[in-house]
Design a protein around this nucleic acid. Sequence first.
DNA 1: TCAAAAGTGTTCGTAATACACCCATGG
DNA 2: CCATGGGTGTATTACGAACACTTTTGA
Lengths: 233, 233
Amino acid sequence: VPSEYPPFAVTVDLVVLTVAAGQLRVLLVQRGGEPFRGRWALPGGFVDIDEDLSDAAGRELAEETGLAEPAGHLEQLASYGAPGRDPRGRVVTVAYLALLPDLPRPVAGTDAAAARWRPVADVAGGEAAGDLAFDHDRILADGVERARSKLEYTPLATAFCPPEFTVAQVRAVYEAMWGVPLDPRTFHRKVTSTPGFVVPTGAMAQRGAGRPARLYQPGPAQRLHPPLLRREP
Amino acid sequence: VPSEYPPFAVTVDLVVLTVAAGQLRVLLVQRGGEPFRGRWALPGGFVDIDEDLSDAAGRELAEETGLAEPAGHLEQLASYGAPGRDPRGRVVTVAYLALLPDLPRPVAGTDAAAARWRPVADVAGGEAAGDLAFDHDRILADGVERARSKLEYTPLATAFCPPEFTVAQVRAVYEAMWGVPLDPRTFHRKVTSTPGFVVPTGAMAQRGAGRPARLYQPGPAQRLHPPLLRREP
DNA sequence: TCAAAAGTGTTCGTAATACACCCATGG
DNA sequence: CCATGGGTGTATTACGAACACTTTTGA
């Protein structure tokens, strides 16, 4: 440990997003200790001294959600290190963005009083904005913006779906994320004709009404050509 | 300073790119002290204890290049914190990406033996790859990839140009970045018809041969609609 | 008057959208 | 047999690439 250099603490914070009931939701925890006791915050914690950043993010995600991210997606978002952002001292946080399938009910981890899925519209957009601890409102906004724009040119929407899914489930992700209804037929053709986006498994979904849908898995593509654009004239 | 938490050092490292003589180039410094003395590395340094991350990046950029980034663009790239990446101890670095106009000759800052613009193709792509200090090869690759892809859907190419520039200069940026020749006429129409990309200043460029070109400034757009796609079927 | 570079008009093929229509199931 | 949602065929439109052509300078 280089003691001749300014000492920092380093944390990871997680923007964990899912889509449930047609709404984009974020995982929040209620802080059990100081500072900001009782306030809602993004899940996160200190990085161990011999731990890689991405390992710390995966560990915190497992601790806070109870699941070891079998499906889903985890990527680094950005780092935040303004001098006054943490009253305990000089703390730099590396934020990660996680996209998960539907909602396994979260369990409150260590030093968290509670853990809940909250609609992003209630936390970030509405009049109740600005009530998260630290600078987590800003981090959340950045995470949502990143996720929204990545849907346009990557196949990341499948990270919000279970391992096998229908085209309609993918469409629900886009509709929740962008807040606009999409034509089911045009959307179906776009998804199935973009090479590497999804691959059929051969199985069919069984549910209530209507013709059964084909099931798909995420395809090998890393980027979408052409991108799935949302129009804004 | 929270002494009950694992102590880290935090640095900023800079991927400073420019386009000169039809080539994408990166600013490298030769290390004057240990570790990696004599090796080439990205410019960077330790963050002061009461200094914001972006301020540290701007300070290092000014120190290493001599100019206070009047034009150009500076954005956070990513953070790197693998436990063994710095032999001095546990150091997390926050990398920034800077895009600058042409090449004011760099000056070697404190504890740097030399500073030079090097073609990215010589450092990252060729057989001489892998010779930068620390994990800077990886950071450079990430920065170049980020810059390349952002050219597609943002007006950031103008950050490589002087305050007033011609369409041909913008085209030279894309051609250097993507390594493909572009049709001047199609490119001209694309740039001038994309709303908010560039705005004419009214002045004309004066040079040697051919009809004088109109001069433009960067426009107000933050994203390009439609994106300037490079095709790869 | 020629070369070189800037900028415009026009054509043409492709690709995206909208929507009509058919398919397969549950009630 | 009707409602519901899944999936395909097709026409129209719009956009992007290519390239002929005009403009404006220096030599």
